[in-house]
Design a protein around this nucleic acid. Structure first.
Lengths: 344, 344
DNA sequence: TCTGTTGGCTAAAACGATATAGTAATTATT
DNA sequence: AATAATTACTATATCGTTTTAGCCAACAGA
């Protein structure tokens, strides 16, 4: 059951290791190895069940055929499906994917560094968190192929793909307003990331456009906070905001907190309160009456991210564009379907 | 920004690479390198920011310090938390973890082989699916360290850790019966795995013990089936089973199907039907009135699995036992709390 | 003085591949 | 006929480590 090495099959075929290497790497004619010998070598290799040792290849070539995927959280089905698609796509290009998540070990950016510093990967797909800016800068200074997903840093020039956050919120707000809601609250988090800013900005713009006040209608939670504390803050926000008709949650995590809060307050969706959330979640589909949300097209994002990375790795279909925003979809469910509100 | 190699720091320190290697691997006194030289080398290494190239180490030693984790599905929070804990624990022993899931590429067992065949990992933690038996046999014949998680093959002698499925169902059934439910259905899947058999067996035993019939009360879905088809089957099962009072779902995936079915039938939990599920899920906690379930102690399972693996890798706290079953917990939520039923 | 031991290090061969620079034999060019 | 060019391969260095076997002093024993 011993692994056969290239040397082994060279010995068996009665040729030199170099020859075997050339043949097996498809450089047979380029190195003008005769057809007969080439096919003989192929045969031997197949018969002996030869598989190159990727570690040796990696050491020699400096390439690992591995991509590093750094997500915020492996659980959460947005990232889960992202990962799955990326894995599939990467496989088509002959790459494997290794995952790390920043949420797990709370050192966030630092865990990333650990991963980065071993430099074995050929490219990075990263969903950035605030602490990472410096590390990412280092990566690109180092000429490592990097693609940012789901967010980006305005200060650094690096390829990225994310959903059009502004458009997403605008769609959601348009829907709420069309349904007759006017007193619309917005719950967000103090994450210093562009996508969060864009979402909030879109909210403000939409409200302003309708000449609606946003005073005391925005709740900003702290990122590093306990879940329970978040729930309490949302609860009191809902409770203490007069005439609140609808709440827009800026992330699905916030939406889940909101669900707990609403549950505790004994409010009925959407009769007592309408809700909409940026980003979908299993729970939103199942939790009656279904939570209306802005859905990020995971498949598009993942595929695009991989394309951008492959471009950098020289396997690209280079269409040139490196900063891509993808249109999100509005998924209307029960929490915005209270008919009475329309006529109010 | 170039990587510094061991050779570099040897040159800088004015010694041979061997000496550096010895010092850096803590073999200084064993190889009787003088204290002064040793500390000088350490200093240089630190100053130059030396990190050994894991690829080279791996090639030379044949060890990668990487563990392969093969789960059924990366999404699903049972596996998500398993992975997280395993990653943490592995780090304490100096191992990294790479994930693969069998669900993603539907070739299941075959995807595994791809992973296995590259043999770069030092050990395997696997949640087995039916097709894998042969592959796992090969692994252990090959003397690779393997631990099975969440299930095992009675035919092969390999360390494993899983929840005590029999006990789990028994707990759940005991709870239902205590609450007064008698017409209890059981929804399972035709997966040919011990844990599924044990769950079903426990159900039958419990019913028999109470002298209750199980005729037409068991629904077995096909594993490879479309989700929608599953929902339809569960729906018609619930609809066509007279006097059905409660349903025990054998996995959380089935429970989710059940939830959809119940939702579509417009039944109210637990008034119209009680439900309990093996294995917890985010949705079960949030979906009103909360789904009662049997919870697998993910942390215990993960830690134990890693211990078993470390035993095989010679870093063990070897207590000898290699086949471990862990007691599950009963999490009572709203779906089994319909007070009227008790007095029925 | 010669041999034996020990201390303190280094040379060099792996690990399994790839890629550059040859080499020997044949064929083409002038 | 002598040189150049081509064909069909091979020798060898290299990637960055680890590890076995040695080497050279210095010192001890006889």
């Amino acid at each position: 059951m011993k692994r056969v090495s290239l040397k082994d099959i060279a010995r068996i075929a009665g040729v030199s290791p170099s020859t075997v290497s050339f043949v097996l790497n498809g450089k047979a004619k380029q190195m003008r190895i005769s057809e007969t010998l080439a096919s003989k070598i192929m045969e031997v290799a197949k018969k002996e069940g030869y598989h190159p040792n990727p570690v040796a290849v990696s050491l020699r070539t400096g390439k690992s055929q591995i991509l590093g995927l750094i997500v915020e959280s492996i659980s959460g089905n947005f990232f889960a499906s992202l990962s799955r698609i990326i894995e599939e796509e990467a496989a088509r290009f002959g790459y494997k994917v290794v995952y790390t998540s920043t949420e797990n070990n709370r050192q966030k950016g630092k865990e990333l560094i650990g991963m980065l510093s071993q430099r074995q990967v050929d490219g990075y797909i990263i969903t950035p968190t605030p602490g990472m800016e410096q590390d990412i800068k280092e990566l690109i200074d180092d000429n490592k192929p990097v693609v940012l997903m789901d967010s980006y840093f305005p200060g650094i020039d690096v390829p990225h793909v994310l959903v059009n956050n502004y458009e997403g919120v605008k769609k959601g707000m348009g829907h709420l307003i069309e349904k007759g809601y006017r007193r619309i609250g917005f719950v967000t988090v103090d994450l210093n990331l562009v996508q969060m800013e864009q979402r909030l900005q879109a909210y403000h713009d939409c409200m302003e456009q309708e000449a609606l006040s946003t005073d005391n209608l925005v709740l900003t939670l702290k990122y590093e906070e306990e879940k329970e504390l978040g729930i309490q803050q949302v609860t009191s926000f809902i409770q203490n905001t007069p005439d609140l008709e609808a709440v827009f949650f800026a992330t699905n995590y916030l939406g889940l907190l909101g669900l707990e809060s609403i549950h505790r307050l004994g409010l009925k969706l959407p009769d007592d309160l309408a809700m909409i959330c940026f980003d979908d979640h299993d729970v939103f589909r199942l939790y009656p009456p279904g939570i209306t949300c802005i859905r990020q097209p995971a498949e598009d994002i993942a595929k695009t991210a991989l394309e951008l990375l492959m471009d950098q790795l020289g396997k690209g279909s280079t269409n040139g564009e490196t900063k891509i925003q993808i249109s999100p979809g509005l998924v209307v469910r029960g929490t915005t379907e209270y008919v009475q509100k329309v006529n109010k």
